[in-house]
Design a protein around this nucleic acid. Structure first.
Length: 547
RNA sequence: GCGCGAGUAGCUCAGCUGGAUAGAGCGUCGGCCUCCGGAGCCGAAGGUCGUGGGUUCGAAUCCCGCCUCGCGCACCA
């Protein structure tokens, strides 16, 4: 039992003695000001109304009923409008370090997920071009969210959905076909809505080489399949460079070949929320909160994109994912209501909030103080691989994760590639490297640090007490970030913790101190190394031993 | 016009799901350390949290109106 849990239990008992109504759920938080102790609760403030007493009186009464000396609470004080502050002894605060080294790489994990299955879909780029910076943000975000869920006990499956059917794919094939014709000396323009990038020309060149039987590019089907295959290969290389792996690649085309789309349409019609108008088939999505109804089947007999989308999500449900999370760019937010409406119209017992969406805003790239213009149509844009090649995988991933998805992200290439302490990823990794350096220089195996026999009250310096608090907060932070699906909290936490680690390292020495002090500080160094490493690992970042 | 998101220090952004005197980095200013260096340390200034109401013991956080910016508003995905 942690000190925090013990305080909580004591508060519940004390509140009960005062006649507080059940359930009693005291909130314990870290006071902003270290002078307010290690923990504080607003319990008295929340009990003021039901008990019809002044908060400060309740706080004093609670404090009198608390018996916490044996768990290391040095003293308790009532402050402000009725907060109760708990001041721990140095050793009580540091006791948690023993858990850190005991749990090692597992410190920070928890089990709220209880092994339930969750599907995390992200990137899902159309195979019509290389992955650009927006996909990069999504790859980093999706992978980190998946990782957060794993850390909190979920059975996670990472999924990539390929839109390899539809108009855009047709445009891709025609674009390549036009380039083949141009190679053949004919003046054929890129069709309207087509793709102009240099990579299209390269695919055309490869097609001609690998398909000697079709030098004029007559077979559009074969060309299209070839182009999709080539681009998928390219995207795989992009993802590989980024260190992201998927468990499942789901092809939209399979929904057609397996009859899932027709099946879904029949089920939607049977569900009674469809109607015919103007030679088209409509779904009454307004029954489920949409602002207007949507066409399912167009006049030309083909389906609109959201029909296969619904069919796709039915397969997720049928594959046993009672929870599904989609990470997408905010420019796709109009699909949210439609997909959910489609699923509701099927009457399959799928919850109304299924699937969950994490939408992220746009990315702009800055280099030399100027914005790098991105234009997909003109074929000039920064790809994920360009970025990884230029600044390294860790910097790219961290920069994409350090802002919350809701805010637009400015990617400063110059900062990302700099090896200075202004660069947050460098600064964090340096903290880890420094801790590792202590063990290297001292010729001590960090894994041998168990904390056994360490005199914890030796860790009495303010920098040590602050660092310890931060380290012990890691599991709660991971749990909160996972619940909110917000990896940026981990990124920010690592930066804050690294700062505390550097401050401690600058001011105090570990090696060559008297044994009592050295052993205690080795424990702290080991715990710091582990927590920073665990956080980096969680975000898909490396934790170098030296830099 | 409608929907979603954002608006917090000069700049880039946090703010732990409603708590105490709103924080960090960079930048600015002042001081210190330094054999070497793409260095380091300490301190200070800097805020009507876009704005006007509301909810309550208490609001940057929740609700409503308005303003500004971004993204969407196709029988494209």
């Amino acid at each position: 039992m942690t000190v925090r849990d013990a305080i909580r239990a004591g508060l519940i008992d004390a509140a009960r003695e005062l006649g507080a109504p059940e359930p009693i759920d005291p909130v314990l938080e870290r006071p902003r000001d270290p002078a307010h102790g290690e923990w504080a609760t607003n319990l008295a403030l929340t009990l003021a109304r039901p008990l019809r007493r002044k908060p400060a009186d309740i706080a004093r009464a609670l404090a009198e009923h608390l018996h916490l000396a044996d768990i290391g609470v040095d003293h308790v004080e009532v402050a402000g409008p009725g907060f109760i502050n708990f001041h721990l002894s140095a050793s009580a605060n540091a006791r948690g370090l023993l858990d850190v080294v005991r749990l090692g790489e597992r410190f920070g994990r928890s089990d709220v997920g209880a092994g339930r299955r969750v599907n995390v879909e992200f990137v899902s780029a159309n195979p019509t071009g290389p992955l650009h910076v927006g996909h990069g943000r999504q790859a980093a975000l999706g992978d980190a969210i998946a990782s957060l869920l794993e850390w909190t006990g979920w059975d996670v499956s990472r999924e990539f959905y390929y839109n390899d059917a539809g108009v855009q794919i047709t445009n891709l094939g025609r674009s390549v076909q036009a380039r083949i014709a141009q190679l053949d000396g004919r003046d054929v323009p890129i069709p309207e809505g087509g793709y102009h990038g240099e990579y299209i020309r390269e695919i055309a060149e490869r097609y001609v080489v690998t398909h000697p039987e079709d030098p004029k590019g007559a077979d559009l089907d074969v060309i299209t399949r070839f182009a999709v295959q080539e681009l998928r290969k390219e995207q795989d290389l992009d993802l590989q460079a980024f260190g992201v792996r998927f468990d499942t690649y789901f092809l939209e085309s399979s929904l057609y070949t397996d009859g899932k789309v027709d099946e879904t349409v029949r089920a939607l019609i049977a569900g009674g929320h469809t109607y015919e108008r103007d030679d088209a088939l409509w779904l009454r999505t307004t029954d489920f909160g949409d602002d207007k109804d949507r066409v399912m089947r167009k006049r030309d007999g083909t389906y609109t994109y959201f029909v296969p989308d619904v069919a796709y999500h039915v397969t997720k449900w049928q594959r046993g994912f009672t929870r599904a999370i989609n990470v997408q760019g905010a420019d796709h937010h109009s699909t949210v209501v439609r997909v959910r409406a489609g699923l509701q119209a099927l009457n399959l017992g799928i919850p109304a909030g299924y699937p969950e969406y994490v939408l992220h805003q746009m990315v702009t790239v800055m280099r030399g103080g100027e914005e790098v213009k991105i234009s997909k149509r003109a074929g000039s844009y920064v790809t994920v691989r360009d970025l990884v090649d230029e600044v390294g995988r860790d910097a790219v991933r961290y920069f994409f994760l350090m802002r919350k998805g809701d805010s637009q992200l400015v990617f400063d290439v110059d900062l990302a590639r700099s090896h200075s302490e202004e660069n947050p990823i460098y600064y964090i990794q340096m903290a880890h490297a420094r801790m590792s350096g202590i063990f290297r220089v001292g010729n001590i195996d960090p894994a041998s640090i168990t904390g056994e026999g360490v005199e914890l009250d030796a860790l009495a310096e303010p920098e040590e007490q602050e660092l310890i608090k931060a380290l012990l907060d890691f599991p709660a932070l991971v749990a909160g970030a996972a619940e909110a699906l917000e990896p940026h909290r981990v990124a920010g936490y690592l930066l804050d913790t690294a700062r505390l680690a550097h401050l401690w390292y600058h001011k105090h020495h570990v090696l060559n101190e008297p044994p009592r002090l050295m052993n205690a500080r080795l424990l702290l160094a080991r715990a710091t190394q582990l927590v920073v490493r665990n956080g980096l690992t969680l975000l898909g970042l490396s934790a170098p031993e030296r830099m």
